Amino acid sequence: MTRQPLRLAILEAERVLAAAGVASPRTDAELLAAHLLGVERTKLMMVPLVDPPVVRELEELVRRRAKRVPLQHLTGTAHLGGVTLNVGPGVFVPRPETELLLAWGLALLEGVESPTVVDLCSGSGALALAVAHARPDAAVYAVEVGPAALSWVRRNADQQVAAGDTPIRLYAGDVTDPTLLMDLDGTVDLVLCNPPYVPEGTPVPPEVRDHDPHEAVFGGRDGLDVVRHVVGCAARLLRPGGGVAIEHDDTHGGSVPALLSARRVLTDVEDHTDLAGRPRFATARRAQPQS
């Protein structure tokens, strides 16, 4: 059995993915090869030759990726804040842009001992688990309504506990419920949320259209159906000085800050851009009581 150069297999994979319209064909080809070989992407150069069965397996993964199956569904994992998450059909795949929202939240918690954190619309549990990983002293609540997504959160939470992280507290709940987590009213240091926010009818890539749950992506006609409830829930949950960060569509750079500003108890409203300079998430603080 003649071994074959991995470099040539990756070049062919890149060609196939580029022809299929995949946005980052070289990166995806290398990540699929690294997944298959069980090595870091940066270590691929240390595997110059592979057996023909490995090439065939890579070709099969590339064929599926060329059909726009999400890369993360093929590898089975996604990453956020130093945490590796299991993902697949039935749950929203975390995006790199959410790292910025996470960083804002963790910065807010600096100097706060044993903070209480709530992750609304938790999906795979990405934000909740990333906070628990970074702040083992935190009490972290993850709220999710979708049965399929809840099963992914439980799996990820169990994995993180096995890895030594602090357990999170998982709630099957709907952010539109005005009694959600009522026992925490006025006590929460940080509320994070990556809700469904894409306006209905907006064209999205096949990976999103065909594989992310529709209810985790689209937020009604203007994309704000769920966000409006998130703002109200956060205003109720936060303690004075506590903060909220809500990811949003790049068309919401004015509307989400306006929703936050409309709540008299919220102050210091700001909008933040992603690495491409697009409006991406809005933040606010719960006002301190007047002395």
Rank of each mutant, 00 (worst) to 15 (best):
D222E: 11
C121L: 09
G111A: 05
L80M: 12
G76M: 10
V265S: 15
R7W: 06
L127Y: 09
R286C: 14
A134W: 11
D28V: 06
S255E: 11
Q159V: 11
E144Y: 00
K67V: 03
V87Q: 00
Q159F: 12
D158Y: 09
V208M: 02
V54Y: 06
A33C: 10
F218A: 10
A130C: 11
T84A: 12
L180Y: 04
R209L: 15
P203G: 04
P115T: 01
R95S: 00
G123V: 09
R239H: 02
H73D: 06
T84P: 10
H73S: 04
T75G: 11
T98F: 12
Q4D: 00
R236H: 05
A18N: 09
Q159R: 15
E57K: 15
A103S: 15
G220H: 00
A20G: 07
L6I: 01
P136C: 02
D210K: 11
T42W: 12
S261G: 15
V256Q: 03
H229R: 13
P96H: 01
A234E: 00
I168F: 04
E215M: 14
P240E: 03
D189N: 12
V112K: 11
P167T: 02
V39A: 07
C233R: 14
A287Y: 00
T2G: 08
T251Y: 06
R56Q: 13
E12N: 13
E60L: 15
R63K: 13
D119E: 01
D119A: 07
R228G: 05
H133F: 14
A23N: 09
S114C: 12
A33D: 10
G201P: 10
V145Y: 09
P136E: 04
D158L: 15
R56Y: 08
A78G: 06
A34F: 06
G105D: 03
G164D: 07
A149F: 04
P196S: 03
G232W: 05
L80Q: 09
R221P: 10
R280M: 06
P240H: 06
E40V: 09
D212E: 09
E200L: 15
L74D: 05
V22K: 03
E113L: 15
H211C: 11
A29C: 11
V54Q: 02
Q288C: 13
V91Q: 00
T2N: 04
I246R: 01
R15C: 08
E59A: 15
P5A: 08
D165R: 15
G253N: 08
M45C: 13
K67D: 14
L192G: 08
P94L: 06
G21R: 06
P94N: 04
G220C: 10
A20F: 03
T84F: 08
A138C: 12
L238A: 05
A130W: 05
A107D: 13
R56F: 09
V208S: 00
W152G: 05
T176N: 07
G123Y: 02
R209V: 10
G164S: 06
G38S: 10
R285N: 07
V256N: 02
L31T: 08
A9D: 05
A107M: 10
H73P: 14
C233H: 02
L6Q: 02
L74E: 03
D274T: 01
R278M: 14
V153W: 10
P167H: 06
I246V: 13
L192H: 07
I10V: 15
Q72Y: 00
M182E: 13
